[in-house]
Structures are given as C-alpha cells and as structure tokens.
C-alpha cells in the first residue's frame, strides 16, 4: 500500500470517529440521523479507496449499493421524525 493511501485511510477513519462521537453524544434524534447519513457517505469514499488500492472493480458495486440503501434509510428516518406514517 502506498503511503498516500495509508494517509487517506487514516483521514477517513478519523472522520468516521467524529461521526461516531456525534451519534453517541448527539442531543436529539435528528443529530444522530444526520451523522448516520454522513457515515454512509464516508463508507462510499472508503470503498473507493479500497478499489484504488486493490484494483478490483467490485468494490464500486458495494459503493453504489451502499449509497442506495443509505438514501432509503435516510428518507425513512426523516419521515419518522416528521411524525407521519410511511404510506402518506
């Protein structure tokens, strides 16, 4: 692994740790939801760096699927926060 990618993984790990801090500490539910959304986007970036490191393209499939599921999860949580039912 090149030193550039090592630093990259380190930076992303620190960023993910800050998201986890906000999930653990966040005073309200929307704080935690925002942090979970951001964590999902960070994982997509992580998958990209893995693809760049291993030169395998199936990591990009994981990234696309992760982005899709993260989006649906965020919208469901937002509807829940608004206090509406899921079919309206």
């Amino acid at each position: 692994m090149s030193p550039f990618l090592q630093i990259g993984f380190g930076v992303l790990t620190v960023a993910a740790a800050m998201c986890l801090y906000r999930i653990a500490r966040g005073p309200s539910a929307p704080d935690r939801t925002v942090a979970i959304d951001i964590l999902g986007t960070l994982v997509v970036g992580f998958c990209c760096l893995m693809a760049l490191w291993t030169r395998q393209d199936y990591y990009m499939n994981i990234a696309i699927a992760w982005a899709l599921i993260s989006f649906v999860c965020t919208l469901a949580m937002a509807k829940f926060l608004e206090g509406r039912s899921y079919d309206a």
Partner: peptide, 21 residues
C-alpha cells in the same frame, strides 16, 4: 452522480423532519 442527486434530498428531508418534530 447518484450521491450528488440523493444526498441533498436526504439532508433536506432530515432538516424538515427535525424542524417539524
């Protein structure tokens, strides 16, 4: 492309939900 389209939508929905809650 997908992240550029979906991430702002998700954040807007969360903020709206946060305000209404």
């Amino acid at each position: 492309m997908f992240i550029l389209l979906t991430s702002p939508v998700g954040a807007h929905a969360i903020c709206r939900g946060a305000y209404l809650s």
